[in-house]
Amino acid sequence: MLTSLKRIIYFGWKDFYSSLGLSLATCFILVIVIFLITSLFLLKGLSEHLIASVREKADITIFLKGDSSEEDILKLKEELVKMPEVKEVEYVSKEQALEKFTKEHKDEPEIMRALGLFDNPLWSSLNIKAFEAAQYPSLVSFLENSSPSNLIAEVDYPQRKLLIEQIFGITEMVKRAGIIISFILAVIAILVAFNTVRLAIYNSREEIKIQRLVGASNWFIRGPFIVQGAIAGFFSVVFSLFMILGIIYFLGPKIGFFLSGFNLLSYFLANLGTIALIQLATGVGIGVISSYIATRKYLDV
């Protein structure tokens, strides 16, 4: 049993380098497939980052009556934070609002003059972000009907409703399209790789038949092909890993502008374990499984 296993591994390794040209051609295809699948993984990270930063822009603001006490406002904030729909609440006090307003309009003397006539006419407000677009209406109705409603002067939801829904709708669509396209590309890539392995084994069909006729067992015949597939997969993974790391390292800074703050290198390094696992599953998985399937056809003599 152990001797057989040793022989199978030895044959696999020997066949790998005695037909090095063919093996490297297989590795080449596997590297492309691994590269593609890794890119899809990185793109997923990038698009999540982009989607999140777009969704950051969707929010509603509740303006609070001038006479509400800070204590009541903070209590309302606490209550809101506890709600499962709410992702984030930001409190902007009257003073902060004034500061911000002055900053934005300091170059417009008329506005500044008009502002000087009053003693801080701005309202304090709570800025609320929900997880989903669909959660805003219930949030708003909660605010309007619940106890602290007497604090609330106005909610800007009706004005922002359309924009919020569009932001969520479009990002959701992008997400779904991404998943579907990735899936299709991955399937195509895997089929191409499978076919490469299949063609390589097609060359050995006569040999497989002879091995059957002289009494070798299926595992003894198939084993070396599977070992070869695993070796090709493993080399492809090692090569791809370094290639991708190199590309990100040298290209990352140059395309940083397009990534809107997404740090490709640190994302890659943070997910190195997952990425290596995905690559191994792809490379070695394709090598092994397609060798297994491709040999089956020639073993039935």
């Binding site: 040999e207 002879i210 059957r212 006729l213 002289v214 009494g215 067992s217 003599v301």
Partner: peptide, 23 residues
Amino acid sequence: TAKLPRIRRKIGTVFQDYKLLPS
């Protein structure tokens, strides 16, 4: 077919076209 290897190991065959493994 899965049982054939066991039987074939009891047989030694000289094929008319030799059928040696080329590699």
